[in-house]
Each structure stands twice: as structure tokens, then as C-alpha cells.
Simulated assay, not measured.
Amino acid sequence: MNLYRSARTVAGASGTGDGVIDWQSAADAAKAATEPGSLSLDPGEREGYARDVREARSAVQTAADVEFDVPETIEIQNRHHWIDANVATFERVMGTLETHTETFPGVARTINTGTMTVLLAFLGRNVLGQYDPLLLAETPADDHALYFVRPNILNAADVLDVDSDRFRRWIAFHEVTHAAEFGAAPWLSDHLEARMESGIAALSDGSFNRDAFRDLDAAMTVVEGYAELLMDHAFDDEYADLRRKLDARRQGRGPLQKLFRRLLGLGLKQRQYERGKQFFEHVIAVRDLETASLVWDRPENLPTHDELDSPGLWIQRVER
């Protein structure tokens, strides 16, 4: 890790540039501030990743009764690989904002680049696995991808004192459930993209599109909650202890890490997971998995914000 090189790279972003953020400088600075970690896999470990994904796909297909494809892009990454893969995603999402703004002065561009550097570096050191639907991708071939950040998985398993193979398998199942969701709902990517673009475009015009962000939050709450529902039905081992230890680890973080999580919206993701899980637990209790899966039939079947807290209202609406 070279913090001096990272800071120098960010400072270089104040040169002539038209974008809100100097993306290359942000990626370079984030990598300079982050140890990449090892990718020295033995053949058995590499096959373990492949086996986990194959078996997760089969189990989730059976549980959800839906056909879907596992991404062709399945990568075992170090932290630098993850940063490189995701800086392109952030750039695509922020592209809407950049098209609505004038050229930023050098100082503002440097601040924005520094903020993105902190975000990429923090996430690069903490993300375990990721299903990436490649939202706003330019070509149809860029449909989705699946990443595993091996150094973070091994580090987390060690800190949590759990078997690394079992922990890796749990991560694989969780990310494959997200692939199932997007496979069951071909419209989901377009739905999320439209809400993102509307919300960011409004911000760039100095206003706040409350409906767009509420719709986006509701959709992501469903995505997180339904993934947990499928995990309950598909995973072939106990995992309550894994979830409990991960939650305890988050609660036990230092004040600086908690601040980063709050600034990066990771607390929002935790709230989405908890709220979505409660919604689907109620639906399953009074109906069944088939009823819960109606959320993916069409965009109109997604629960509203009010319905997420009153699942009975959603059930009445979709069963009419």
C-alpha cells in the first residue's frame, strides 16, 4: 500500500478534464492505497469455486422453479481486479450526471476524484462477492458478471473463525440468487436503470426526484429480501451462524469504518435486507414461495414502499 502515491495520483486529477471525476486517477489512487491480496489458488480451490457456482445454480433453479443463466464472466479476483471492474460501473452510472453538468473547475474535480478514491478503496477491501448486472452497459453482450474477491473471502473467514470453504460456498449461493432474480425478471435491469437515470438527472438539475429514489429503494429492498428467501430454500447447510457473525462484525467496527459505511450507503443496504426479509417472511407465512415469486412477473408487481411494511396489501393487489 502506498498512500503517498495514492494522494499524488488524486492531486493530478486537477488538470484539464471535462468530467465530474477523473476516473483513471481514482482507480489508480484506490489501487495505490490498497494491497491487492494473493491469487495463488491451488487446483482444488479453483475447482471449489466452479463447483459452488454450478451447484448453487442447480439448487436455486429447483427452489425458485425458474430458468436462468449463470454469467459467462465468473472471475476470482484480487482487490485491484475488483476496483478495475467496478470503476467502469460507477462511471456508467455517473455518466447521466456528467451529461447534465458544465465542466467542473479543477479543485472540484480533485475533490470528487478523491471521494471516489476513498469509496473504491474501502469497497475493494470489503466486498466478498458480487453479482453485477452491468447496468447501463453499452453492448448487449455485457449482460452480467459474477465476481469473487478471494483475499477478502479468506480474510473474513479467518476473522469470523469459520471454515473458508463453507463460507465461500455461502457467498456463491447468495450471489447466484441475484442472478436468478434478474433471470426471472428480464425487465429488472431496465427498471433499475430508468430510476437511476431519472434520479441522477434531477439531482444534476438541482432538484430531487423523490419518486424515482423511492422506487429504486423499494426495488432493491425486494432484490435483497428475495435473495434471502431463496437462500433459505436452496442452501444445503446451516448459515444462521455466518449471518450472525457477519452482523456482529459490522456492529463491532471502529468509528471510522462506521462513518465510511454510513457515507457509502452500506447501512441502507442492511436496512433493505432486513426490511425485504421481513416482507417475504410474511408472504411465505400466509401464502407460499409461488406467491412471493409474483414480484418478478412484471414491474407493476413490485411492492410499493407502503406495501413493503404491509405485505397483506400487496398480496391482495397481486391476487386480484
Rank of each mutant, 00 (worst) to 15 (best):
N112C: 07
G114A: 13
L128G: 01
D143H: 13
G129M: 00
V127C: 04
V127P: 00
D132Q: 05
S164L: 10
A137M: 11
E138H: 12
D165E: 15
L123N: 03
L160D: 03
D163F: 11
Q130S: 14
A157F: 05
F148D: 05
L160F: 07
L146K: 00
Q130K: 15
V159N: 04
P133W: 01
T113M: 06
D142V: 10
D142R: 08
I153D: 05
L136E: 05
V159G: 05
S164N: 14
V118I: 15
A157D: 08
L136W: 01
L134N: 12
S164Q: 15
L134A: 13
L120H: 01
D165H: 15
E138L: 11
L123M: 12
G124A: 09
I153H: 05
T113H: 02
T117Q: 04
L120A: 04
D165I: 13
A145Q: 06
N155W: 02
V149Q: 02
D165F: 13
R125M: 09
G114K: 03
L119C: 09
V118Q: 14
G124Q: 03
L120Q: 03
L136N: 02
N126I: 07
N155L: 10
G114N: 10
E138I: 10
M116D: 07
D161S: 06
F122M: 02
Y131I: 10
V149E: 00
V149Y: 00
V159R: 03
N112M: 08
L123Y: 02
V127I: 12
Y147I: 11
R150M: 11
S164W: 13
S164F: 11
P140F: 03
A156N: 10
D165V: 14
Q130M: 15
P151K: 03
N126W: 03
T139E: 15
P133M: 08
G124S: 08
N112H: 08
D161R: 05
L120T: 05
L146P: 00
T115G: 10
A137Q: 07
V159S: 07
L160S: 07
A121G: 05
P140A: 07
P133G: 07
L119T: 13
P151V: 08
L136Q: 05
V118K: 13
Y131M: 09
N152V: 08
N152T: 09
Q130E: 14
D143L: 12
D158K: 09
L134F: 09
D158F: 08
L136R: 02
L154S: 06
H144F: 10
L146W: 00
D132N: 12
F122W: 06
D132V: 09
L128A: 04
V127L: 05
N126R: 08
L135F: 03
R150Q: 14
L128D: 00
G129Q: 01
L136V: 11
V162P: 03
T117K: 03
D161C: 04
Q130P: 12
R150V: 13
Y131K: 08
T139L: 15
